[in-house]
Design a protein around this nucleic acid. Structure first.
Lengths: 109, 109
DNA sequence: ACACTAATTAGATAATTAGCTAAATTACGA
DNA sequence: TCGTAATTTAGCTAATTATCTAATTAGTGT
């Protein structure tokens, strides 16, 4: 779970996943969307693969990556569940006197 | 968004948030649950605060932390939305099993 | 003012991560 | 087999992160 979260906490990798949402793509085609070198993209792919968020498959000289939506989905649900906000039945958000849970003023520094 | 994800990608910080789900707690009381030093916990708190996931409030010599559930909730929804799996109306997704969403072969290493 | 408690800041170190260039690998076509 | 293209690995540097101990700040009570 940490691995999935760490993987998607990087903007580049999130964008890769969003690109793959439209369908499978080669490493090169993906890399074209970013201003970093191909080896750098390759390590990003490796992180995504380690998190099991993508599948890779050789096709000739290319490598086609595809999104494993179900893994992403389950990770998100797992997190939601861990924090009591199960999205499919969002009801049990406040279960212990929600006094300090949400404050009116948000001071982001 | 990256900040929230990075914050919750750490197991210690996730546990802190889960503890705070039961209600506000002092820094010391939170720290007791972990095997790391208090200064280390303090930096974890700082990360959570920077992500706007917790609120802090002085009370005498103590600092009381409380969870900002709404921020966490919105971040999770934002991610879900970015990937087209809006949790509140999950319709196009199959969570029944681990059948790959679009790839036939899953080789998790 | 002084001592005590709670928490944070300062300063250091080790581990991880993102990025690069250059080299190696793999597959394909002539 | 040789050359080319696509991708990854190797090896490096810089930046970030997690952790520690020691010192500092802030509040409370005597």
């Amino acid at each position: 779970m940490s691995q999935v979260l760490k993987a998607i906490s990087d903007p580049t990798r999130r964008t890769v996943l969003e690109l793959l949402r439209k369908g499978p793509m080669t490493a090169g085609a993906l890399a074209e969307h970013f201003a970093v070198s191909k080896p750098t993209m390759s390590t990003h792919f490796k992180v995504l693969k380690a998190a099991d968020l993508v599948h890779s498959e050789k096709n000739g000289t290319s490598v086609i990556y595809s999104l494993k939506m179900s893994v992403l989905e389950e990770a998100l649900m797992g997190i939601a569940h861990a924090f009591g906000l199960d999205p499919n039945k969002n009801e049990s958000v406040s279960e212990s006197g929600d006094s300090g849970t949400q404050n009116p003023k948000e001071n982001r520094t």
